[in-house]
Design a protein around this nucleic acid. Structure first.
Length: 439
DNA sequence: TCTGGGGTCCTAGGACCC
DNA sequence: TCTGGGGTCCTAGGACCC
């Protein structure tokens, strides 16, 4: 028996905790460059704002409909997420944190009325963090996801599903007739794993509702849509193909990429930008105790600017020896960047990817035949302690307190820097931004 | 003028091996 | 003229997720 706990409109809900005046108002949270809407309140959804819709397309709703836009504040959302996850974890023996706003819980062997447990969880999270959640229970992860969809939709769109399923929905409490009714009201596209490409293809084959899908021929769908679809179908029929994984593996790749506030044409600017990206990914790399065996760099012009000549090169460089040393990674990344950069293009975005990650303990030093020099053991230790000293200084004095020179920000305003004009304070993680209560 | 960022898994096809 | 077959590994691209 699985549950999926999911925060409603996570980023908007986090903002509302500290600014209750936003309740009941249409609110969106914008991406890093204030470029697109990445979270929407129900009121904003009702205004027709779509996921990832460019801000300039809906900006007129500010005046016309009182739409409020905020810059993303990931530090705040991450902290609120940890608080919510810690509370949810108390309710079941196993928890898998699936994303910043969702977790699966495995209720195997837990006695009692699951809906009552779910309602208790929900009200505790609401009381202790201020975040509203929806909870779905099902025999598999895919069914728990679908139950969660029903719980959320019943709350938001009256008429589509029975109102008693709102907020907390347990498929195992439903009679065959009730389940039948729910499954024939749910679209194939509402199923976890069926996305915007596959749903239309299923529709063309005459499969519109989840019930249609359940009646379909598994081997035929497997042939046409692959093994992912087969697993989805099995899960919908109640056979678990996925478990709750409470000990996730470290990431296999770590990425940092960003669109620029204004087009970039100069190589030195790009070098500065990707060096800053490396600083971030290398930090994450060391946090998860990994080494990178290679780096990948990409830059691209804006496909939306039809009048511009387009260029979107990318290249990978294998490192002779896996490392987590920011300096080594920066020099590798800059080498790749120099090889792919061409003057005369308006670059709109760049990214750095660390690939071929391995656990630091598995690293076999002195295996690099092409790296000259004496036994690498002592330099390796120096390298590691330099990097931990850098991390410690940045922890203590703020990010960017100590950095590699090529990643240092030049003085003065930089046009390519991200716009973050509407960011709220980081209420829960910065002492100087903490919320102040006034009498 | 302005168009998100960070991940995973699967598949097809090419290189290479014997 | 005839032009293997089976296996592995790697990569790029696509689909999905939030």
């Amino acid at each position: 028996m699985f549950a999926l706990v999911d925060v409603n409109n996570m980023y908007v809900s986090c903002e509302r905790v500290f600014r209750p005046a936003l309740n009941g108002r249409p609110v969106v949270v914008l991406s890093s460059n204030d470029g697109a809407c990445i979270a929407r309140s129900n009121e904003a959804k009702d205004l027709g704002v779509r996921m990832a819709q460019p801000w300039f397309e809906v900006r007129h709703l500010e005046r016309e409909a009182g739409l409020i836009a905020l810059s993303a504040n990931f530090e705040l959302y991450g902290d609120m997420s940890s608080r919510m996850m810690a509370l949810a974890a108390e309710y079941a023996p196993r928890q898998e944190i699936y994303s910043i706003d969702e977790c699966f819980l495995d209720f195997e062997g837990v006695p009692g009325d699951l809906v009552a447990i779910g309602r208790d969880l929900r009200s505790k999270v609401l009381a202790w963090t201020g975040l509203p959640t929806s909870i779905g229970f099902g025999a598999t992860k895919t069914l728990a996801k679908l139950a969660n969809h029903v719980a959320k939709t019943a709350d938001r769109k009256p008429g589509r599903y029975p109102p008693q399923y709102a907020q907390v929905c347990n498929f195992l409490d439903l009679s065959a007739e009730q389940l039948h009714a729910v499954l024939s009201a749910a679209d194939v596209g509402d199923v976890w794993g069926i996305g915007r490409k596959t749903a239309p293809r299923l529709n063309e084959a005459g499969l519109r509702t989840v019930l249609d899908l359940l009646k379909a021929d598994v081997p035929a769908l497997r042939r046409q849509f692959g093994i992912v679809m087969e697993k989805t179908l099995r899960e919908l029929r109640g056979t678990p193909c996925h478990v709750v994984d409470d000990a996730p593996q470290p990431n296999q790749q770590i990425m940092c990429s960003r669109s620029f506030g204004a087009p970039v044409t100069e190589l030195p600017t790009l070098i500065e930008v990707v060096s800053q990206f490396v600083t971030q990914v290398a930090r994450k790399l060391r946090e998860q105790g990994s080494l990178a065996g290679g780096v990948q760099v990409f830059i691209n012009t804006s496909p939306y600017r039809r009048q511009d000549r387009q260029h979107a090169p990318s290249a990978t460089l294998r490192l002779g020896q896996a490392t987590s040393d920011t300096r080594v990674l920066i020099s590798a990344v800059v080498r790749v960047l120099r090889s792919i950069f061409r003057p005369g293009y308006n670059y709109a975005k760049a990214g750095v990817l660390l690939v071929d990650l391995q656990q630091a303990s598995h690293e076999q030093s002195a295996l690099d035949l092409f790296e000259p020099g004496p036994s690498p053991d002592a330099p390796e230790r120096n390298r590691a302690s330099l990097m931990s000293a850098m991390d410690a200084l940045n922890d203590r004095f703020g990010r960017g307190a100590v950095t590699v020179a090529s990643a240092a920000r030049r003085p003065g305003p930089s046009a390519h820097a991200s716009k973050q004009e509407r960011r709220s304070p980081r209420f829960t993680t910065r002492l100087d931004e903490i919320a102040v209560a006034r009498a």
